Simulated scan of single mutants.
Amino acid sequence: MPLHSCQRLSPTAVLGLWQLTETPETLWPLLPQPAAYQALMPATADAARQAQWLAGRVLIHALLPQLMAEPPTDLVVHNDATGRPWLAGNGHGLTMSLSHSGTWVAAVLSLGGRVGVDIEIIRDKAQRLAGKFLAADEWAAAQAAAADGPAHYTLLWSAKETLYKLAAQRGIIFKTQLLLGDFAPQQSGEIPATLVLAGVETRHCICYSQPAPGYVLTYCHEPAA
């Protein structure tokens, strides 16, 4: 299906969701410069992975007109050494973040600043691995607050994934450098977060919602100063 939703986060940023129903064959014609993307497609990706990869790039190109009256025609989504996507070409300082899980693809596109987004299928994996990515106080709070264990722990994992993408650095330890504050779990809301890099703590706000049954979405947008 086409673009599922587009939400304006600020005058300079948009959040887009794509519900993936297409095959790779039907997604290719939706991309500009398909030859450039054919050279970037991961060689080991199976058909499902190819569809997610392509849908993410189609989504970014679908969001561009929301921020630019006449988007440059030479823009191509690449990945840097940390795996973070970026737009090669005359991108005018555009920043972006991409995520996909199951049949959903999410993206945040911004004119500068920092962004992060993550979408996850709700499952029990995050709860089983909680001790590996949650600090002791986070784990204690989750055990006390989680009425729906898998959904709550998936939300916590997703929030840390979004903060990790915002940091855009490799080697970050989720348990000690990506910290989540107290919040009352709801269908949608905000989670206070702290990023610890080189001994310096910075404060952030992670927004969350459930865009579809069985999924959780988190994102963060911080405009350029």
Results as ranks from 00 to 15, higher is better:
3 L>N: 02
3 L>D: 07
8 R>S: 13
8 R>C: 11
11 P>G: 00
12 T>L: 07
13 A>E: 03
15 L>T: 08
17 L>Y: 02
17 L>H: 00
19 Q>S: 11
24 P>H: 10
24 P>V: 05
26 T>A: 13
27 L>V: 07
29 P>R: 09
30 L>K: 07
34 P>S: 14
36 A>T: 02
37 Y>Q: 08
38 Q>S: 04
39 A>I: 01
40 L>C: 00
40 L>E: 04
42 P>R: 15
45 A>R: 06
53 W>I: 05
54 L>E: 13
55 A>V: 07
57 R>T: 02
58 V>T: 03
59 L>G: 00
60 I>P: 00
61 H>G: 01
63 L>N: 00
63 L>I: 04
64 L>P: 02
66 Q>C: 02
66 Q>M: 09
70 E>P: 06
71 P>L: 05
73 T>A: 14
74 D>A: 12
74 D>P: 15
76 V>P: 06
77 V>A: 01
81 A>S: 11
83 G>W: 13
84 R>G: 02
86 W>L: 03
86 W>C: 09
87 L>A: 04
88 A>Y: 13
88 A>F: 14
90 N>V: 09
91 G>K: 10
92 H>Q: 15
92 H>Y: 14
92 H>K: 15
93 G>E: 00
93 G>M: 13
95 T>I: 06
95 T>C: 10
96 M>V: 06
97 S>L: 00
100 H>Q: 05
100 H>S: 01
101 S>M: 10
101 S>K: 02
104 W>N: 03
118 D>W: 10
119 I>P: 06
121 I>A: 09
122 I>W: 07
124 D>M: 04
126 A>P: 09
130 A>D: 12
131 G>T: 08
133 F>G: 15
134 L>D: 14
136 A>S: 13
138 E>N: 10
140 A>T: 00
141 A>K: 01
145 A>D: 15
148 D>H: 12
148 D>V: 03
149 G>T: 00
156 L>R: 07
156 L>G: 12
157 W>I: 05
157 W>L: 12
159 A>H: 03
159 A>C: 04
160 K>V: 06
163 L>Q: 05
165 K>P: 06
167 A>P: 01
168 A>R: 12
169 Q>S: 08
170 R>E: 14
176 T>P: 09
176 T>Y: 11
177 Q>P: 02
180 L>R: 12
182 D>S: 15
183 F>D: 03
183 F>C: 08
184 A>H: 12
185 P>A: 01
185 P>G: 08
185 P>I: 04
186 Q>H: 13
187 Q>F: 05
188 S>G: 10
188 S>D: 05
194 T>G: 07
197 L>K: 01
200 V>Q: 12
203 R>F: 06
203 R>K: 14
208 Y>V: 02
209 S>V: 10
209 S>F: 03
211 P>K: 00
211 P>S: 09
212 A>R: 07
213 P>T: 02
220 C>V: 05
221 H>G: 03
222 E>D: 06
223 P>I: 11
223 P>M: 12
223 P>F: 15
223 P>E: 08
224 A>L: 15
